[in-house]
Design a protein around this nucleic acid. Structure first.
Lengths: 196, 196
DNA sequence: CCCAATCGAACAAACGCTTGCCCAAACCGG
DNA sequence: CCGGTTTGGGCAAGCGTTTGTTCGATTGGG
């Protein structure tokens, strides 16, 4: 769940802890409502010490975003390989997507709620690139689906990703599992394959 | 599009202009990245003058949220009455929803991107209440649909609203119209009615 | 001439970030 | 195995700026 522990080298431990703390705070309050002091306090260091590991607050957000995308990409890629049927592959991908979004809730929440257009051109470009790269997984999964010609694959993808992303807004722990959510959502889209 | 002009009374003109300016700034940068000075500058007044009309910055957000919800509710309610068939009514509602979300982009964007959980308990409660009230329109529209028992109406509603809300994230003016977007999305869900 | 409405100026607090200094562990030639 | 040196990491303090908000003075239409 946290990045800190998984970074073999002891050397990077502190950096990982700051990253985790930043993800938690950014997820809870949003980027601009979160102060460097908040993050430092959550990480157990003083504000100034953060700047040894990250050049700026913006750099810290970039690192959280990159780590979050990388993680969800890995999980989804791994999940896909467990199935052969195109619909099963999509369902596996969605389950992994929703699961990761809520399991490492902090990183997932940052990805789902920090809009690129609200950040500097430089960071915006990085975020969009990383997101596009990730969405390409779904692009190719959906390309493999046997859909009627009348169904727009573009809207299929956007609606699917939107429906999953929105779960961040309404999900309450203890109700349904991420797998159930993903299964329900995919089942909603599944009949679209047989439509004329 | 703007509230300012529509408020008959001259007396409320300034209040409406501040409200519009706040919606624009909140939509562009988010609540906490927007300063009272930004809003005042956009409204053509001095920062202090805002406090004659609104008790606080938070109150201003509450007013923008309420105005946005009220507007979208009116449009959707009106759109529903143009049709009798349950699916047509849903499609009309979705078209009005997406259209309003993008037409009065500022108010719509604030609704779609300001998460209640990130605000004070008082404001959070108000926002959730207003949203629930609005979502009840869709709740009853979906109750009227002839869906197979295996289809969860709850997930149907959440996925539909999520897919529409997400359009804020990817929509670029000049590509598709709001009506086309809504039609495509509803058509994706429509086959779910005939599934076993 | 009144009073709603706005201005102009200021407030304390919080902001992102920089700087100068310090300490312990790791490293490495002799 | 020693002892000097490098280096990862953190501390304490404060820089200048921006924040939300307050408030007495000022203005102008009815």
């Amino acid at each position: 769940m946290a990045v800190a522990e998984t970074d073999g080298k002891r050397r990077d431990n502190r950096r990982g802890r700051i990253l985790d703390a930043a993800a938690v705070e950014f997820a809870r309050s949003g980027y601009s409502a979160t102060s460097v002091r908040d993050i430092a306090a959550a990480a157990g260091i003083l504000p100034g010490s953060m700047y040894y590991h990250f050049a700026s607050k913006e750099d810290l957000l970039a690192a959280v975003h990159a780590a979050g995308i990388q993680r969800i990409k890995e999980r989804v890629r791994a999940a896909i390989e467990t199935a052969d049927d195109p619909w099963d592959r999509l369902e596996a991908a969605c389950a992994a997507h929703v699961e990761t979004l809520h399991a490492s809730k902090d990183y997932g929440s940052v990805i789902a709620t920090e809009f690129p257009r609200r950040h500097s051109p430089k960071l915006r470009a990085r975020m969009i690139e990383e997101r596009d790269d990730y969405e390409n997984i779904f692009r190719s999964l959906i390309d493999d689906l046997p859909l009627p010609e009348s169904t727009s694959r573009k809207y299929f993808r956007l609606a699917l990703i939107g429906a999953m992303a929105w779960s961040i807004a309404w999900y309450r722990p203890g109700e349904d599992t991420a797998e159930e959510i993903a299964r329900h959502i995919v089942n909603l889209f599944r009949p679209a394959a047989e439509a004329k």
